[in-house]
Structures are given as C-alpha cells and as structure tokens.
Simulated scan of single mutants.
Amino acid sequence: MEEETPQLDRAALRAFADACACSHVRKAARVITQVYDTFLQPSGLRMTQYTVLVVIALSEPETVMLLAEQLAMDRSALARALKPLEEQGLVLVEPGSDRRTRVVRLTERGQQVLTETHPYWVQAQEQMMARFGAQRMQNLLAELKNVETLEELA
C-alpha cells in the first residue's frame, strides 16, 4: 500500500506569504541592496562589501569573531566575505594573539577605496530618503534597530 502524499495547505502557505517577518525583511533587504549596489557600482564595491569595510574601519583592529558578531554574521560567512577584500588589497587578515584568532584591519588602499566610495553611498542614501521621506526613513531605521536586538534572543 502506497503512502498518500500530503496535500499542501494553501491557506497556511498564504498565511506565510502574507505574514512571515523573515520572508518580508529578506525580500526588502534584497530590494534595498539592489538600490545601493546600483549607486555603488562605479566604485567596484557592492553594498555588502562597503558595510564590512565600514565596520572594520570603525573597530579596527578587530578579530574576525568580534566583527562577525557586530555584523550579525556567521564567522565562516564573514571569512568568505573578507577573502575578495583581502585579494583586492583592501583588508589585511593577520594572526591574532593566539593561533585561533585572526585580526582584520584596513590597508591604506582599503581606506582610500572607502573614502572614494562614500560619495556613492551618500547618493544612494539620498535616493532612499527621497523614496521614503525623512520621517518614514527615520521610523524604518528605528524599527530595524529594534529588530537587531532580537539577535540576543536567538
């Protein structure tokens, strides 16, 4: 006797599509990232790379582990993200105080690229402000910062 394949519960799937915070935040993040990537294109950096460089610049020198925490990323994902930045000569990843740690810092070239890229980010930010309006953007950022505190619950 064959087992019957369970039928998809379309109502449950619709509830997911309509109400899943994770799904909607990820989709919104992809859309917003595409906007920023368009503006950053002349710099040769993607928004994800620019974000990593900014966090490094604000906290250097810092271990990969602590950078990953600041970015809410898995260490291995951050290591993969750092690889092309290291290959481009934008960051230096060196041994830390013991064999298990790696310390990340911007190179002089990384500082230069970060400085050159900033005006493109400003243009993207201005575009987002124009699309959302200052008050909605401020509200959105406040809500996103609240969401970031959920990481402590995970």
Rank of each mutant, 00 (worst) to 15 (best):
E2W: 06
E2L: 15
E3S: 13
T5P: 04
L8H: 05
D9N: 15
R10N: 11
A11R: 12
A11N: 10
L13S: 12
L13M: 15
R14W: 14
F16S: 05
A17N: 03
A17S: 09
D18K: 12
A21K: 02
S23A: 15
H24I: 14
H24Q: 15
V25E: 12
V25G: 06
K27A: 14
A28V: 08
A28F: 09
A28E: 14
Q34K: 11
Q34H: 07
Q34F: 07
V35K: 03
Y36G: 03
D37A: 08
D37R: 08
F39S: 08
L40E: 02
L40S: 04
Q41L: 13
P42K: 11
S43I: 08
G44I: 08
L45P: 10
R46E: 10
M47Q: 06
M47K: 07
T48S: 14
T48W: 07
T48N: 08
T48Q: 13
Q49C: 01
Q49F: 05
T51G: 06
T51N: 04
V52N: 02
V52D: 00
V52Y: 00
L53F: 06
L53N: 03
V54N: 01
A57V: 00
L58H: 00
E60A: 08
V64M: 01
V64K: 06
M65G: 01
L66A: 05
A72T: 02
A72Y: 02
M73A: 10
M73Q: 09
M73R: 13
D74T: 08
D74A: 11
R75F: 01
R75Q: 14
A77R: 08
L78D: 00
A79E: 10
L82G: 05
L82F: 10
L82D: 05
K83I: 02
K83P: 00
K83F: 12
P84N: 11
P84E: 13
L85N: 05
E86W: 01
L90T: 04
V91H: 02
V91F: 03
P95V: 07
G96H: 05
G96Q: 04
D98K: 05
R99C: 09
R100H: 12
R100C: 05
V103Y: 04
V104C: 07
R105K: 15
L106Q: 05
T107A: 09
T107L: 06
E108V: 12
G110V: 10
Q112H: 14
T115F: 02
T117K: 11
P119V: 07
P119C: 09
Y120Q: 11
W121L: 15
Q123W: 10
A124L: 07
Q125E: 14
E126V: 05
Q127V: 04
R131S: 10
F132K: 04
F132P: 00
G133P: 09
G133V: 11
A134K: 13
Q135S: 09
Q135L: 13
Q135M: 06
N139T: 06
N139Y: 01
L140D: 00
L141I: 03
L141G: 11
L141H: 02
A142C: 01
L144M: 14
K145G: 00
K145V: 03
T149A: 10
L150S: 07
E151M: 04
L153S: 02
A154M: 10
